[in-house]
């Protein structure tokens, strides 16, 4: 079976500094892929290339055979959750889901509201539906961001360090929500530094270093790896 996401020899530089170097990667449908690695290794850039938020300098990304040239190429099919949430502050919690459904998918207000309420139940935010994002905790904001992405019924979800800006207690709330999602058949890619999250989530782990994939395998294989650089990174993370 063809992979859902095919990354072929992509390279990306910022101001002459290479960030991704000739990356090749296939992601199968339903796979839960975690991308780890030191800061500046290119993890976020890699997943931002998957949905066209970053244009690649060379190489191609295809999703289900569609060439990703910009976010428009795969709009709605690839959901993304950001480290800084990026909720729409001028919309209420409910409208953060309702308005995109009405604007993008042309769903009627009543149907959109029903869908939004059901999603808010799932992420335990039903009671906050009339509040504005600015009044929510970080964990609640991130759960709303997840619900907003899910409302577009994407085939793929990308998580760019979704818990990095949260304290451990709030990070756990978000982690539970993501883990719950991971039991679905959706294809998911997670960039994270939090190894307990990676362990509970991933069916496959990539270790990225200086723009190159230097490990691709299961979580257990990663832990058991004899590669010095990986062991040094793991020791730092677990300290």
């Amino acid at each position: 079976m063809d992979p859902l996401i095919r990354v072929e020899n992509i390279s990306k530089s910022f101001g002459g500094t290479p960030v991704l170097k000739e990356i090749r990667l296939d992601i199968r449908r339903g796979e839960k892929l975690a991308v780890i690695g030191p800061s500046g290794s290119g993890k976020s850039t890699l997943i931002r290339c998957l949905n066209g938020l970053e244009n690649v300098d060379s190489g191609t990304v295809t999703i289900d055979g569609i060439l990703v040239e910009s976010t428009r190429s795969v709009a709605g099919r690839v959901g993304m959750v950001f480290q800084q949430f990026n909720l729409f502050p001028h919309y209420s919690v409910l409208n953060n889901i309702v308005r995109p459904l009405m604007t993008v998918k042309k769903v009627g207000r009543d149907d959109a509201a029903a869908m939004a309420r059901s999603l808010l139940e799932k992420v335990r935010l039903a009671e906050q539906k009339d509040q504005y994002p600015g009044t929510l905790s970080g964990g609640q904001q991130q759960r709303l961001a997840i619900a907003r992405s899910l409302s577009m019924a994407p085939d793929i979800m990308l998580f760019d360090e979704p818990t990095s800006s949260l304290d451990p207690e709030l990070a756990f709330e978000v982690f539970e929500t993501i883990q719950h999602l991971a039991s679905s058949r959706m294809t998911m890619v997670l960039v994270s530094h939090q190894m307990n999250m990676v362990k509970g989530f991933a069916t496959r782990v990539l270790f990225l270093e200086k723009g190159i994939i230097s490990f691709d395998g299961s979580f257990d294989a990663l832990i058991g790896s004899s590669d010095d650089r990986i062991q040094r990174f793991l020791r730092k993370i677990y300290q």
Binding site: N86, V104, A145
Partner: peptide, 11 residues
């Protein structure tokens, strides 16, 4: 980030 979130949703 507001632009990016909106583009990802399909705006």
């Amino acid at each position: 980030g507001q632009y990016e979130a909106a583009y990802c949703l399909g705006y």
